[in-house]
Amino acid sequence: MCASYGLDPRFTDDELLAEADAEVIEGLRIWAEQNAGETLRPTGKNLRNLNPLLLAHDEKMALEPSWWGYLVNGEPAKFPSINTRSERLQERPAGLKTRAIVPSTGWFEMQKPARVWHEFALENQALFGMAAVTQRGRTPEGEWITCYSVVMAPAADHLKEFHDRMPVLIPPHLTHEWLTAPPSRDLMDEAILASGELAERITVSARP
């Protein structure tokens, strides 16, 4: 399951969501530079980092600092919430009521039993989107904020030797539909199919 990902400020925007405008691109680049190339990790009780999330706002794409993982009663959920299985959303499409896209240049998984970290990315540090579902939550300080969970599906065949799951990738042509269409089993099925096509271009490299 996706436990960390990256957003390199040197990204190219070849694969960026068709709806993203120059302001969104610049906002992502500024955030990534300020983050100094640090790997993005879930926000927890003792870690308060808000990550950029892309949501639909007035028929356009908007960038919003958001909390990775769900908040319940003012604290991080006690159940696993940073990832959501695509199979669960296929069975219960109501879980797709509110959705977002996580901008990334690569995600990281540990290969077992060797315990070697690997990065999964497109060529040329291309920026791509990972599917997410969202809900509102209240921080320990009482602030209401958008929380997100990355949608995970079975890994593409050429990636299974490294990890059996991978994020659902949202290609540009599906951006608007993923963010705005009514929740349904068909929407999740379409996203998984489109993700499989984009996943063929994902390459893997060992991390020191």
Rank of each mutant, 00 (worst) to 15 (best):
I202W: 06
A94W: 02
G106D: 07
G137Q: 12
L127F: 03
P42N: 07
Y5N: 06
G196Q: 01
S4Y: 07
E177W: 12
P9C: 11
V150Q: 12
T180C: 01
S86R: 11
R92W: 02
D189E: 13
P103N: 00
P113W: 07
A77V: 04
A194V: 02
G137N: 14
F162E: 05
L127I: 07
R41F: 10
W178K: 01
N46G: 12
K97M: 05
N83G: 08
R138V: 15
R185H: 10
T12L: 14
D21V: 09
T12W: 05
G129R: 03
L17H: 05
R85G: 00
R138L: 13
S149G: 12
M110V: 14
R88I: 03
A155N: 11
K112N: 12
P167D: 12
P171F: 00
N124W: 04
F120M: 01
S81Y: 02
R201N: 08
Q111P: 01
Q125E: 14
F120P: 03
W178Q: 01
P171N: 06
L89D: 00
E200P: 04
I30R: 11
S205I: 07
R48I: 14
A36N: 08
E200V: 08
G137M: 10
E123S: 03
V102R: 05
Q125W: 13
E143I: 15
D14A: 15
P171V: 05
M166H: 07
A131V: 08
A199H: 01
G69W: 03
W178R: 02
L63I: 06
G95F: 01
R41W: 12
Q135N: 11
P154H: 06
L16F: 05
G137F: 13
L169W: 07
E19N: 01
P9Y: 08
N35Y: 14
Q34Y: 06
W178E: 03
V133C: 05
L40D: 12
D14F: 06
M166I: 04
V151E: 06
V24Q: 09
A131I: 11
A191D: 05
D8S: 10
P182R: 02
F128Q: 04
E59C: 10
R207M: 00
E177T: 15
A121G: 01
G37F: 15
L122E: 12
M110E: 15
G129N: 08
K160I: 03
A199K: 01
L122Q: 12
H158F: 01
W68T: 10
V168R: 00
A191C: 01
E161L: 04
